[in-house]
Simulated assay, not measured.
Amino acid sequence: MSTVIEQVVEARLVAAVPRMPTIPATLHYDRRDPFAVRITFPAPATLEGVEVCWMFARELLDTGIDRPAGQGDVTLRPYGYDRTVLEFHAREGTAVVHVRTGELRRFLARTVALVPTGDEHLYLDLDHDLAELMGGAC
Rank of each mutant, 00 (worst) to 15 (best):
A69Q: 07
F88T: 02
G64P: 07
R67M: 10
V9R: 12
E132C: 12
V8S: 14
C138T: 15
A90L: 11
V85S: 06
P34C: 04
I23F: 00
Y79E: 13
R38C: 05
L114H: 04
R83W: 15
V17R: 15
C53T: 15
A43F: 03
G49L: 06
E10R: 12
A25D: 01
Y123C: 11
T46K: 05
F35K: 08
E6W: 01
R31C: 03
I65E: 08
S2E: 11
G70I: 00
G70D: 00
A57T: 02
H89R: 15
A95M: 12
Q7F: 04
P44R: 12
R91H: 14
P78E: 03
M134F: 04
R19I: 13
G135N: 00
Q71T: 11
H98F: 15
D127I: 15
V8A: 14
V99M: 14
M1V: 15
L76I: 00
D119K: 13
D129I: 06
G118E: 07
V99F: 11
S2H: 13
F35I: 06
V112M: 10
D33S: 09
D129W: 09
L126N: 12
A25Y: 02
T84K: 00
D125H: 08
E51I: 00
G80V: 02
V112S: 13
A131C: 11
P116A: 01
Q7V: 10
F107A: 09
E48P: 03
M20S: 14
V52W: 05
R32A: 14
T94H: 14
P21C: 09
G64L: 01
P42I: 01
R91M: 13
G70S: 04
A43R: 02
A25V: 01
R110C: 13
R58F: 06
A16M: 08
H89W: 09
F35H: 09
D82V: 14
D73S: 00
V17E: 15
L27H: 00
A69E: 09
R77G: 02
I5T: 03
T46M: 09
F41D: 07
R67Q: 07
V8M: 14
G102C: 10
D129N: 00
R12Q: 15
R83H: 14
F88E: 09
V14N: 02
H128W: 12
R77V: 02
F35Q: 01
M55I: 13
L133G: 01
T26N: 00
L76H: 02
P116V: 04
V115K: 06
P68A: 01
E59P: 06
Y79I: 14
T111E: 05
P21Q: 04
G93Y: 06
A137G: 00
D125I: 12
T75F: 10
D127V: 15
T26E: 00
R67Y: 05
G72Q: 03
T75H: 04
H28N: 05
A57R: 06
V4N: 08
H128N: 14
L130S: 13
T117E: 02
E48V: 03
A11H: 07
L76V: 04
L13V: 13
M1K: 12
R67N: 07
A11F: 12
E87Y: 10
T94S: 11
V14K: 11
P116S: 09
V9W: 06
V74P: 07
D62H: 07
T3N: 14
E120T: 03
A43G: 06
T40M: 10
R105F: 13
F107D: 03
A25L: 04
V96I: 02
V97L: 11
